[in-house]
């Protein structure tokens, strides 16, 4: 464990931070090929991740001791973009209304968590867990849609299906780490680092997967 935290963990942080650049570069190459709304939404999602990483690093560079406020803002904006993708993908009014309701509810949870419950300097565990649960639900709703509509013959060609898979794995994998982060940090820094390491590995996989999703969103 000691070896992991001293040798691999710093390297993992760098790789995971840089991994968002992979889909971003792929997206830049594909920019001219597409004018689809879906592509732009996914590309905005990636751009937001890059901006969030950059601002986090800049905050630390400028000497601030806490940059968790960036995660608060990023969580809300990421949820809005991913919800827009699902909103755009569903046709049934019931699902669309459900997504609007989820966005309103989540915005409320975000604000309450940031200013009333955990605070802007603490990890937004409650927001993360509730947001992840809602996004997983949207992903499963999309699975339900494609399993019944049968309009998509090859699932691996459907960008929203791939995005739903990515979200399902990423959010299912990171939810517990976010939920336990504040408790782990209170116990020890190393425990918190283990939680972060899980998030970093899954972030890396998620961003690599987003590159493929962007490619599919152009065709």
């Amino acid at each position: 464990m000691e070896f992991f935290l001293r040798q691999i963990y710093p390297w993992l942080i760098e790789v995971s931070s840089a991994s968002a650049l992979l889909p971003f570069v792929v997206g830049l190459f594909l920019l001219r090929k597409t004018k689809g709304v879906l592509f732009w939404l996914i590309f905005t999602h990636i751009s937001l991740a890059i901006i969030s990483e950059s601002v986090s690093h800049l905050t630390v560079y400028l000497g601030a001791k806490n940059n968790i406020w960036v995660i608060h803002i990023y969580t809300l904006l990421e949820f809005l973009i991913l919800s827009s993708i699902f909103y755009y993908s569903f046709r049934r009014p019931l699902f669309r209304k459900g997504i609007i309701l989820a966005v309103v509810l989540f915005t409320g949870i975000c604000l309450i968590d940031a200013f009333v419950l955990e605070g802007i300097t603490q990890m937004n565990s409650l927001t993360k867990v509730s947001g992840n649960a809602m996004l997983i639900l949207m992903g499963i709703l999309y699975f339900y849609k494609i399993a019944n509509d049968l309009t998509v013959t090859y699932l691996d060609q459907d960008p929203v299906f791939l995005l739903s898979c990515g979200i399902l794995i990423h959010k299912a994998g990171t939810t517990m780490s976010y939920a336990m982060f504040n408790a782990a940090l209170a116990a020890s820094y190393d425990a918190a680092r283990i939680c972060i390491a899980i998030m970093l590995v899954l972030n890396f996989l998620y961003y690599a997967f987003l590159a493929l999703i962007l490619k599919r969103a152009t065709t």
Partner: peptide
């Protein structure tokens, strides 16, 4: 001890 829920539940969720 504090990471037990993470270590058990995360693989199950995955």
């Amino acid at each position: 001890e504090i990471l037990k829920p993470v270590i058990i539940i995360t693989p199950v969720l995955l």
